[in-house]
Write a protein that binds this DNA or RNA. Structure first.
Length: 295
DNA sequence: AATTTCTCCTGCAAGC
DNA sequence: TGCTTGCAGGAGAAAT
């Protein structure tokens, strides 16, 4: 499930597209695309930059609209090159492709010679993702203003500010993109485990423990950075634009480990539904009523 | 107003 | 073996 680290890895693997010109847009499923102007307005525009906030990628163009890419549950962006070093994606990766862009690659130097063209495939079997067009940077700013601070840089103070008075479980709050942008079910469980905080802790109560809230913010930043380092977590679908899987799932200490012993204390990890999501935690390392913080 | 529940969708796994 | 059922999950809408 693409969360911030996977989305960032996709963004980075797409960076070679900067400078390319979009020469064609094929929409196979109209309901995969929303927004104004029509996505065909991309034709002739040059990809100027790839930005990210939380789990959203923004494709900025020169002379065309901005496109927000949301990967949802199973979204992939695959770059298929033709020409000297072109490779073709496997047959299975050709199903559920809802939008394709034809791009004319940027010319940067002469070796190796760039492929004559490439295609960017937006694939999403479960179709929880989509593309949204925006007219201006102002629209993007407005849209991203609804998101909380990006998980890579969120501070304890920012977390405390948005959680003060919130009567939700901390896990529910972490999944809320207006609190922290980019955290999903996997990294919420991993960060709470790393910080030694029960997912059921009331957000407002956690806020009263200044040390704990800063520990949690630090855990979020660290886990997300480590996951990017490992290329993200591939459970089933996730691949970057070059078709590479991520290795971070091997380092998960909580997510997906319910019923197995805690790597820190050996207690059997507990599984329950918290915030409508399957949640795994260590009842001993993440006590629901915080012990007296070290004596 | 804040919070929870519902809904969308497909592919895999488990159970019979 | 082949069917049915259940579950996974991001995010916005709808309900509480």
């Amino acid at each position: 499930m693409p969360e911030l680290p996977e989305v960032e890895c996709v963004r980075r693997s797409l960076l070679p597209l900067v400078g390319s010109r979009i020469t064609g847009v094929l929409v196979r499923r109209a309901d995969f695309v929303t927004g104004t102007p029509p996505i065909q307005a991309l034709i002739g525009a040059e990809i100027a930059a790839l930005d990210r906030r939380g789990k959203q990628i923004a494709v900025l163009t020169q002379g065309g609209p901005i496109v927000i890419v949301q990967l949802g549950m199973s979204g992939q962006v695959l770059v298929e090159s033709a020409g000297p070093r072109g490779e073709r994606n496997s047959q299975t990766l050709r199903t559920h492709v809802h939008v394709e862009w034809a791009v004319e690659p940027a010319r940067r130097g002469f070796t190796p010679p760039p492929p004559s063209f490439a295609r960017v495939l937006f694939r999403d079997p479960r179709r929880f993702g989509g593309l949204t067009t925006l007219t201006s940077q102002r629209d993007l700013n407005e849209r991203w203003a609804a998101l909380g601070p990006d998980g890579l840089v969120i501070t304890g103070d920012q977390l405390a500010e948005s959680l003060a008075g919130s009567r939700r479980a901390i896990k529910a709050a972490l999944l809320d993109q207006s609190v922290v942008a980019g955290v999903g079910n996997i990294y919420a469980d991993e960060a709470l485990f790393a910080a030694g905080i029960s997912p059921r802790t009331l957000a407002s109560r956690l806020c009263r423990d200044r040390e704990a809230i800063h520990r949690l913010a630090a855990a979020i930043r660290t886990i997300l950075h480590q996951a990017i380092e490992a290329g993200g977590s591939t459970l089933r679908d996730y691949l970057d634009a070059d078709g590479r899987a991520g290795e971070f799932a091997q380092q998960h200490l909580a997510y997906g480990r319910g019923g197995q012993p805690c790597t820190r204390c050996g207690t059997i990890l507990k599984t329950a539904t918290v915030a409508q999501r399957t949640t795994v935690w260590c009842p001993r390392c993440q006590p629901s009523r915080a012990r007296h913080p070290r004596q």
